[in-house]
Every structure is written in C-alpha cells, then in structure tokens.
C-alpha cells in the first residue's frame, strides 16, 4: 500500500464529504486507527435502540423496533388450523421477513431484495431452534384445533444490521401477543368470543392468553475488518467492509447460532470470541430494553 500518502495529500485539500465518497475505505480506516467511527461511536458500541409495543391495533401482537435508523415492524396474527397427525397437540409458527420498496433505494417493486430470503430463513431457524416458544402452548383442542401464529416482519428503513433489528422486533411482538379468547361453535369452527354475548359459550382457552417465553434469543452483528471489530454496522459500513459475523445468544447466555456468511476476512477463533463477548454485553442491554417496554405496557 504505497497509496495512503497520496490520499493523505488529497485529504488535506479535499472536502471531507468528497473524500468519504471517493475513498470510503480509507476514510473509514483513518477513523478506525483512532478507535472511533464516523458517527462518533466507539468500535464496540451498538446504536441507540428503542422498542414500542402495540404499534398495529388490528393484530394480536405487534412491535416496532429501531436500532439507529434501521426500523422494523413486526406483527402477529393468530389463525386456527387443524394440527398434523404426528403432533396433535402442537401449534405452528410461520415467519416471514419482507423488504418493501419503501425501505431502501436498492429495492424495486417486483424485484425482491437479495437479503430478504436470507434474513427470513435466519429468523425462522433462530426463533424455532431457540426453544423460546413451546409449541404445545399453541394447542387449543388436541387433534382438532391449534393456533397458527403468522409473524410478519416488515423492514421500514434499512440502515444495516437488519437481522438484529428484525429479531428484536419479532421477540418483542411475541411478548406483546395477547391470544384471543375463543370457543368452539356448533359448526365445529373456533370463534372469538366477543365481550357482549359471552353467555352459553365455554371459552376453550381462558387461562392461556399469554405465551411463556423461555430463553429469549438476542443477536449482535459485527463487522470484521483487519484487526478491528465493529459492532452493529450501518448500511454504509456493510457496503464498504463485507465480512459479517452474527452471534445469537439466549437470555441465559447460551449460544443459539453463529453466522459468518463468507466475506474476505477469515476469522480467527479469538475474533469470534471477541464477537461473542460483545454480544454478551449487548444481550444485557437488549434485555433491559425489552423488559422496560413490556413493563411500560403493563402500567397502561
């Protein structure tokens, strides 16, 4: 690399924004040497995170999660299905991740974003394998009726770390979920009991209004670049440095999954361990944020 000098000369006479666009990597490396990022974060710090429960009133559970500018809206609609013969007393969860064209200039209508099926699959794997939800709690009448929980997550603004924000919103939507009280009508269909005419019908699930969430998964995506580890990257950082590591830990600190989908940097064990350590810190933060959002709901 004989070039840094050249760019060094440029940078003294060049506007900062122009330098950032023309030499993005050098722009970043100059910051990294000083252990700081262009948005004034230290390397290991995630962006401000907020959570709002109950954003969509027409659903049974919903949450809006924001990590920096990345915004995710997750909502759950409960429908009834006949359980399969192998698992007569278990319900089902269907998870879908969407990137509508509003979220990023790279997504056009009719052409789904590349990341969409990838994040969708990751979410599905993580949520189902973490054991957060006991499928038996989704059962209504063994062998006859069970809940199918449709979880749809929409990316409203894409600015990096999509999976982290999507997982957070999904988990929050599940903790906000209120299962409707239902009964079986004469035709054998399961129907919501409305508050006005409750008489004569026995609710099937009077006690089971909330799911018990055991071991909630939380995640942190980091970028590996040379010897640096950047937690919670923005879209700009993801586009410049391409080696991502996503670590998912559950609330008691056990490893749920670890993704390193290729990239130009080969990760050493120590780097992976550092990523896990960063995630461990982040899980504590995220747990507090989730707890606060949930307890804020209960006060209302």
């Amino acid at each position: 690399m004989g070039l840094p000098n050249v760019s060094g000369d440029f940078s003294s006479e060049m506007d900062v924004d122009a330098f950032r666009r023309l030499f993005p990597l050098r722009f970043y490396e100059r910051h990294l040497v000083e252990s700081i990022r262009p948005d004034a974060r230290p390397l290991g710090r995630a962006r401000d995170t907020t959570l709002a429960l109950g954003a969509v009133t027409s659903t049974d559970g919903s949450a809006l999660a924001k990590i920096g500018l990345t915004t995710m809206l997750a909502a759950i609609k409960m429908e009834v299905m006949t359980p399969s013969i192998e698992t007569p007393d278990e319900g089902c969860i269907a998870i879908d991740f969407h990137m509508p064209p509003i979220c990023s200039p790279l997504v056009r209508p009719g052409r789904p974003a590349e990341a969409e099926p990838v994040v969708s699959k990751q979410l599905c794997d993580t949520i189902l394998s973490s054991g957060m939800i006991n499928m038996k709690e989704l059962s209504l009448i063994s062998g006859k009726a069970a809940w199918m929980a449709y979880l749809d997550i929409y990316c409203l603004d894409a600015d990096g770390a999509l999976f982290d924000a999507a997982l957070l919103s999904a988990v929050a939507a599940f903790s906000h979920l209120q299962i409707p009280v239902v009964s079986m009508n004469d035709d054998g269909r399961v129907v919501i009991i409305s508050e006005e005419h409750q008489e004569g019908k026995d609710p099937v699930n009077k006690e089971k209004r909330k799911l018990t969430l055991s071991s909630i998964p939380f995640s942190l995506t980091s970028i590996l670049h040379k010897k640096y580890i950047l937690a919670d990257p923005t879209a700009e950082e993801e586009s410049i440095m391409d080696t991502l590591v996503t670590v998912v830990l559950d609330s008691s600190g056990r490893l749920v999954s670890l993704y390193k989908p290729g990239g130009t940097v080969l990760a050493y064990t120590s780097a992976i361990q550092d990523c896990i350590a960063l995630t461990r810190q982040r899980v504590k933060e995220l747990r507090n944020i989730l707890d606060e959002a949930v307890s804020g709901m209960e006060v209302d």
Binding site: V80, M81, E86, T87, C92, C124
Partner: peptide
Amino acid sequence: AGKAGATPTTYAP
C-alpha cells in the same frame, strides 16, 4: 417442529 412441510389451511377465528 414449528414448520410442518406444507402450510396447512388456516382461518381467522
């Protein structure tokens, strides 16, 4: 366990 092959038909209650 959560995703059983083909999606079964469901209805809103």
